[in-house]
């Protein structure tokens, strides 16, 4: 992966290479270089398969302008190599250029990311249509600050006779009675 990294580094301002294993590495780059980097990987380096496109919310890290991480994972099947390109985005009013023209299937990922994380891809086909949620009016639910438990308690009635326990505390009590 180092040879590929060196070639990419000569073209784009790539951050440090995180080599997870011999055939999988990740690197961060500025948003404006993402598209040319994806094009270069697809057309020049044989990374033709978009494996996935997803987001990670680093809310607790506290860095104001880079709390959302978008990961574009590409695969070179002939050489059995994967590279993940990461871009960091601000949390509010986040928009990102669509890549559906590079991989049509990316439109589905982008539609889900807008619904689940609130990351907008303005040019992506059907991006404003509901994907999984229907009539959702809360904050995007896959954000870290969306409280699943509170939402469930507010939205649904508990069945009588049912009690909820904190899993960690409950398991401690079961395994080490009286010591928690």
């Amino acid at each position: 992966m180092h040879a590929l990294y060196d070639r990419l580094k000569a073209l784009f301002p790539l951050g440090e290479l995180t080599e997870q294993r011999a055939n999988l590495a990740f690197a961060t780059l500025p948003v404006e270089y993402l598209r040319p980097a994806l094009l270069h990987l697809r057309d020049q380096e044989g990374y033709t398969h978009l494996v996935l496109l997803t987001a990670v919310d680093w809310l607790e890290d506290g860095q104001e302008n880079c709390q959302f991480q978008l990961t574009y994972l590409l695969n070179n099947r002939a050489e059995n190599l994967d590279i993940g390109l990461r871009v960091m985005l601000p949390r509010e009013g986040t928009t990102m250029a669509s890549i559906h023209d590079l991989w049509p299937t990316a439109a589905t990922y982008q539609r889900e990311l807008r619904e689940m994380f609130g990351i907008d891809f303005p040019d992506s086909p059907g991006v404003y249509e509901e994907f999984i949620l229907e009539g959702w009016n809360d904050i995007p639910p896959y954000r870290r600050d969306f409280d699943t438990l509170k939402y469930a308690n507010d939205s649904y009635a508990q069945r009588a006779g049912r009690e909820t326990r904190d899993p960690e505390t409950h398991m401690k009590e079961q395994l080490y009675p009286g010591k928690s």
Binding site: Q20, V51, T71, L73, L175
Partner: peptide, 24 residues
């Protein structure tokens, strides 16, 4: 109960009956 895993990221894939199945 006390299992913490260092910061990192990975992708694992396998060939299921329908194609590539993976976990990021």
């Amino acid at each position: 109960l006390h299992w913490k895993i260092p910061r990192g990221e990975t992708y694992i894939r396998g060939e299921c009956s329908r194609g590539e199945y993976g976990y990021y």
